[in-house]
Amino acid sequence: MPRLPPSLVTLARSQHSLLPLLLRQTRSLPLARSELRWLREYVFQLPSSISSPALHRARRHHLKRLCYHRSLGAPLQYLLKTQPFGTVEILCGKGALIPRPETEGTVVKLFQTRRNGVAQEGYGLRVLDLCTGPGSIALLAASLLHDSGSPSGYRVLGVDISDRALRLAQQSLTYNIANGALPPAARQNVGFTKLDLLATDHSAALSTIASFFNHDFTSGREPESVVDIIIANPPYISPQGYWKDTSRSVRLYEPELALVPPPLPKPHGSDYLQEDSFYPAIESLATKLRAPGLVLETGGNDQSARVQHMLAQRNWETSIWTDFAGIHRNVVAWRGNGSWSWLGSLS
């Protein structure tokens, strides 16, 4: 990384003594100023019982400490303990991936821009979020589905292997209900459960998922499909890419478990890549659950092409969605000319 020009650091210092610390991570003065503002807002909002001059000193000290941690690379989202994600706020902490704006864009595209498309599904949409991490996709989906006023409700299940992430997801659910971002009914409609997607035997996963969705949701629906749409943001970074492409703050603070898939014991053919481990597993689970629609996040154009190829081989209709930076971020897939073929009309 190029060295920061000393003139920029001097300029930053002349504006606020803490700005040079933040500048080390943000690399841009306007962003450093924004981060300082957010940190200050956070510190000065914390409830406290100390008297005012001492309180002010304590808070100044706290702010300084946070800026120091930030300068060492701690993600701002961990320091502030939350990250806004669409209409909800996700609690952030060690052991869970910080929700990314690209993912936010995907979920909004799926549930909001095509609100009509989703609403046509009618009776209670069933959403399965695989590799949910701190529950970001599941909670935002619940919020958007609630806002679209689906008459017979919705059900969202988030699945992950990490206990820490799942604990955080549960807390996020409570937090968002408490601050009004989600209705109290979300407590019944949204669930989180621990499953290992890479396990060779899917029967445990299938029965857990089926029991969550079949609970009073069986009437008036084709009996075979257990869920309506599967969304997943699985670990998709290769071991080499982990050292090459990720930022230092990501490597130092975010769980590798959420970023790099483990190698599979027996490779599926010669062109198998470790970073693609999850996609075939998700596809086979989707097939077993008879899910008519799939939305998968990937690491970029090449991976999207590989995933698209794999899905096409397994008789899915596929299409690509690009993110705001123009990168092929999602592979979307649907069965035949089913009710999810509209996924292909977005880009």
Binding site: E35, P75, G299
Partner: peptide, 11 residues
């Protein structure tokens, strides 16, 4: 610019 997604956690 960059790979985006899980690779970075910019604010």
């Amino acid at each position: 610019s960059g790979a985006g997604g899980q690779h970075v956690n910019r604010t």
